[in-house]
Amino acid sequence: MKSVQLPDMDQPASDATAHRLNYSDGLSRVVYTTENELPYPDGKLIVSRVDLDGIITHANDAFVDISGYSRDELIGAPHHILRHPQMPKAAFKDLWQTVEAGKKWHGYVKNLCKDGSYYWVYATAVPNIRHGETVGYTSVRRKPSRSKIAQAEALYRKMLEEQA
């Protein structure tokens, strides 16, 4: 498995909280979060693809726009560049186990932007199967409802407490 070390995030100018995130590949970095939520872009899908190592190989315009990163910064970066510290590790473990088993995964995800802002999505990830072999994964996000976000927030808070 290929690992790519992401640099620590730049500290945003606004009030931000620092966190050290430890990723499953053993690497870690400092990220900053703020309370600024970005609205999901109406009518759009946010689409990305990764290779078998979780490295981003494709990002559509909506993905690039909301992330705050340039396309060049995203392509070649590990997908956990979006990881928000308020997402429990178990959610991503479940995602990877599901798609590596060749199945479709759905879930509500809080994503982190380059400036520490966040946005919620309803994500669906599928394996890209070509000639019977998985060659990568596609993730497509849609706009979640506020009631589902509230449910997910409560669940993830509980999972994070158990994780601690």
């Binding site: 479709k104 599928v126 890209n128 070509r130 993730s139 497509v140 849609r142």
Partner: peptide, 16 residues
């Protein structure tokens, strides 16, 4: 062929 497959994967995510 890959363009077609990519679109199918994308649509697969919209089915449910």
């Amino acid at each position: 062929q890959e363009d077609g497959e990519f679109m199918i994967d994308l649509m697969d995510t919209l089915l449910d």
